[in-house]
Design a binder for these strands. Structure first.
Lengths: 220, 220, 220, 220
DNA sequence: GATGAATGAGATTTCATTCAT
DNA sequence: AATGAATGAAATCTCATTCAT
């Protein structure tokens, strides 16, 4: 029993072959979207799944619904990972969450673009997730593993950061993101008396200045 | 003088009105792609630029060529930033590069998806960029600002990481990526005797295990 | 059974409705191209066939592929006519070929422009065709029906000649080309002692001379 | 003085540079249409002529007008050739006409497609041309050079025939059409007692029968 | 008058979705 | 229920023609 057919709780259970088709379609979608991006056609997904496009549309009313199901599954999985991480008592739960989120994103790299659109309304899950992050964070900070000034928003950004690294590297180096996460977790550790660098407070160059710098440089 | 009209060195210069339209088209493309993604139609870009579609296609023979020009401009800009950063003598150049890369990516968030495809052949620029990263890194490490085990690949991943954060946040919080970069730079600082966490060495859960955890959890 | 659905030998046969649509599209293309030339839009072809444009593009990946299929079909038909003509034992085969080629070209006058482009690589068919022309020619010459100095190239030119006449006349006079062919075949008959006229050897006026003649003549 | 600037008799004469541009454009059009067909763009014609497209449109209000001018020029030239041929007293005038028409068509092979569209209304010239053909024909028949059953329509078809051969061969073999004309003129010569072949009277195969023959033959 | 950049209607082509088999 | 052919709206791209410089 996977997370997938658990979703439509109130609906009548699918016939066995229908459920199999559904699984095959989701697996095919993960593979095809990972290879060609979300612009891949539904025909290709159906072909890889070994079914006709009509069957795809019987299971998922639109392409968007198929993507939503993938994304929803990932969200549920990450939420589950967060719940499990909350069981840790040594303050390492937040790190477990980050690793688990990395695993899941690496496994379904095709639809990360839609993973973090908070546009849709699964607010309950989102609220619980945020709440869990807060708990994990406090636990890590209490254990002295995480700097006290790290916020939930910082953790969200770590997840988006993983997304960027995974999308860019997973095809060529499936585990490269782990090294990146390592460095990021190091950035969460308590620091010495100097504290953070001055990136935030420094007055940054404007984009116009950056472009002007380009023009001044010799063309390659 | 910007980097744009400097690009076609050998070609005859554009007439003033044509050059203005070219600029307007690139600006419009940045805006439209940032708002609607690369799937936005060329008609929309032309409309925002205030020209006909034929004019767009007179300047850029395909939509892809327009995107390539945006991406190429960004790459040239980032390379220029790297060159400028190499002038720093206190070992902070690598940090300047990261901040500059963040600025540029935040300013053109619409085409980041294509920015780091090393598929195309601007190898000279890429090689110079990698070489500059190496120099900046060594300089930072010599100054004691960067951990000695950080590699050029790590820096590349920081750039991809910025991309993920910027794509996910720039619309709602245009400067949120700075905070993330702060934490990432903190992760690059030399650390105490415990060193890195154990993310890499720990045996991670498999995706199957993660999914099973989802199923076991109560649905929201 | 026509030549059309026999073409994709190795491919799985089309569903009956799909095959019907394919036939309808080819028939519509013949008609539309005959009426408006190859510049006619694919929308018009689809409309006449009574299908959507998407259906046309499902059968033929580009407009060119549709034209190629028409042209290829004609070539196969003409080749078949040549084979059948080769069965004649009285030396009249070459004449049968010319008549058959006229029939076919008159029936599909819309794409003659592309029919004799030897650019594409159906060389096997072309070689067989040339070889058959040689056989037919020798047979006709042996029977005393064809002048001994006529070459295969002469016959090819007769086919191109038919094309010109048919394109120019078929709309207004669908059978006018037969009369022309009659005269051309007369030109192939053995002749008396005077032989050919002196067109080839006479020194022709240059185009400049011809134009000068125009200018000298009173304007109409 | 050529036939070209003689055309707009009533109009004020063009300035010398304008007239030069006009000539250059017509020459360029002949060349470009011969190379790429009438589908070639006006930009290409202007480029070959060494002028801007605006200049082209100053001389010719539409692309069609440019083509019409080429075609009209050819018609006037052929008419002039016919007039000159009418001066022959030995009955060879009709042959001179055919050769001259071949020369002209070979020199401007790009617009033959439009040459014989009797759609436009230059009826006076057309009537004179037909009349001249009649005269030439009678003269040739009186001299015993041409079969008595040959009609003016037959001669028109010879011109169309030349068009087909020239369009198909002029690029690769600029003089191949002369050999074809030779054979065609042979077909016009008086014949022995058997007369014409039986192409016209024989009951031809239908196209359906021809296609069936194709299907029966092995595919190449 | 000459130029060539701008125009936009129209062409080809794709693909999410529907529906007859 | 499954299939894959059909659909047509929308996208990309072209080119005859106009017009500002």
């Amino acid at each position: 029993m996977t997370e997938r057919n658990a979703a439509p709780i109130a609906a009548r259970p699918l016939r066995r072959d229908a459920a199999e088709n559904r699984e095959r379609l989701l697996d095919a979608a993960i593979q095809v979207f990972a290879e060609h991006g979300l612009d891949a056609g539904v025909d290709e997904v159906a072909r890889v799944a070994g079914v006709g496009t009509g069957t795809l549309y019987r299971r998922f009313p639109t392409k968007q619904a198929l993507i939503d199901e993938l994304v929803g599954g990932m969200r549920r999985s990450i939420l589950a990972v967060a719940r499990r991480a909350a069981l840790a008592t040594d303050g390492s739960g937040i790190e477990d969450l980050l690793v688990g989120a990395g695993e899941l994103q690496a496994a379904q790299s095709g639809c990360l673009r839609r993973l973090w659109n908070q546009s849709d309304a699964e607010s309950d899950a989102l609220n619980e997730f945020r709440s869990l992050i807060g708990v994990l964070l406090k636990s890590g900070q209490a254990a002295g593993r995480i700097r006290p000034d790290v916020t939930s928003t910082d953790v969200s950004m770590l997840l988006w950061s993983l997304r960027g690294v995974i999308e860019s590297t997973v095809a060529a180096a499936p585990n490269a993101w782990r090294r990146h996460l390592e460095l990021m977790i190091a950035g969460l550790r308590p620091v010495g008396p100097d504290g953070l660098s001055a990136v935030l407070s420094a007055k940054p160059m404007t984009v116009a200045q950056l472009r002007a710098a380009t023009a001044a440089a010799p063309q390659s």
